[in-house]
């Protein structure tokens, strides 16, 4: 075993002029997602220069600053719009968007559905922690009905978004869900998401014990990981379950996997066609 493995790989992709440990809370799954993403990029052997990480605002948005890629930390909810411009301007680049659930599903919901409809060749990595963590624990569109937050002290009234159903409905080429407990599976998903053409959506369930857990029966980070271990069920098994068995269970795995060409590819071929014709 002479290969460098595990965190030693990751250390090579971290920015050496940044101070570690990072700003996220102890036990926050976001670091695990970042590690997983780095391993996926390493597995695919993509040069650092060809990777652009575009992040939104929130805890997830802070990840970009720590990695030695081209990194763009954008405005709240708008990461996919920047990513769309970058991909169209230079289709050669691997553009990966890191967003939170509030970022991608609430303020950026419109951009998410249109990126999916357009099938732009970008990987959307949605870090779902069911809460607005950075700003102190307010409700997000992924906050489960009935749970308690700073802005829903008497219980969340509205239903939460099903990211997978939303992305599929909007036409994403690849849709998958993983958790930070099931890391190897998540890594496989990311490898596939990045290498597919078109728009890929990966929802990573990454618990926030600080802002969500403490108010909702999960006292420590470990409690949250135990919940993940128990709640997550591979999609094929989930499908065989009865409605009753499905209660409080979360299907994980790959939900959509197609190979439709991305918007940028379709644009380039249209351009070549029009230019060959010499205009209209």
């Amino acid at each position: 075993m002479n290969e460098i493995t595990g965190n030693e790989i990751i250390h090579q992709y971290l920015r050496h002029n940044k101070k570690f440990p990072h700003v996220l809370c102890a036990g926050c799954g976001h670091g695990i997602v970042l590690g997983t993403l780095i391993r996926a990029i390493h597995t695919l052997a993509i040069p650092k220069d060809d990777v652009v990480i575009v992040a939104g605002i929130g805890c997830s948005g802070r990840l970009a600053v720590y990695v030695d890629f081209n990194t763009v930390h954008t405005t709240h909810g708008r990461a996919l719009t920047f990513a769309t411009g970058i991909k169209m301007a230079n289709p050669k680049l691997n553009v990966i968007c890191i967003m939170g659930d509030g970022d991608a599903l609430s303020i950026g919901g419109n951009h998410l559905i249109h990126a999916a409809r357009r099938n732009i060749g970008v990987t959307a990595l949605i870090l779902n922690n069911n809460i607005y963590g950075m700003t102190g624990g307010q409700s997000s569109p992924a906050t489960p009905e009935g749970s308690t937050t700073m802005t829903n002290p008497y219980g969340q009234l509205d239903a939460s978004f099903d990211t997978v159903a939303l992305a599929r409905g909007a036409g994403a080429n690849y849709v998958a869900r993983g958790t930070v407990f099931h890391v190897k599976r998540l890594e496989k998903i990311m490898v596939e998401a990045i290498s597919r053409p078109g728009f890929s959506v990966v929802e990573a369930i990454t618990p926030c014990h600080t802002q969500y857990g403490r108010k909702n029966r999960y006292k420590t980070p470990v409690d949250m990981y135990k919940w993940l271990k128990k709640a997550a069920v591979p999609i094929d098994r989930y499908e065989e379950m009865t409605e009753e068995q499905r209660t409080d269970r979360l299907p994980i795995g790959v939900f959509v996997a197609e190979d439709r060409s991305g918007f940028e590819e379709r644009y380039l071929s249209l351009q070549a066609q029009m230019r060959a014709k010499g205009g209209k």
Binding site: V72, F82, I86
Partner: peptide
């Protein structure tokens, strides 16, 4: 040349800023 119609003006700005960063 790249032309793209976005979903709204917020996205339009995001896209052109992204493209400008890409040169």
């Amino acid at each position: 040349g790249v032309f793209i119609q976005l979903e709204d003006e917020i996205a339009s700005m995001g896209a052109i800023i992204g493209a400008s960063l890409a040169g």
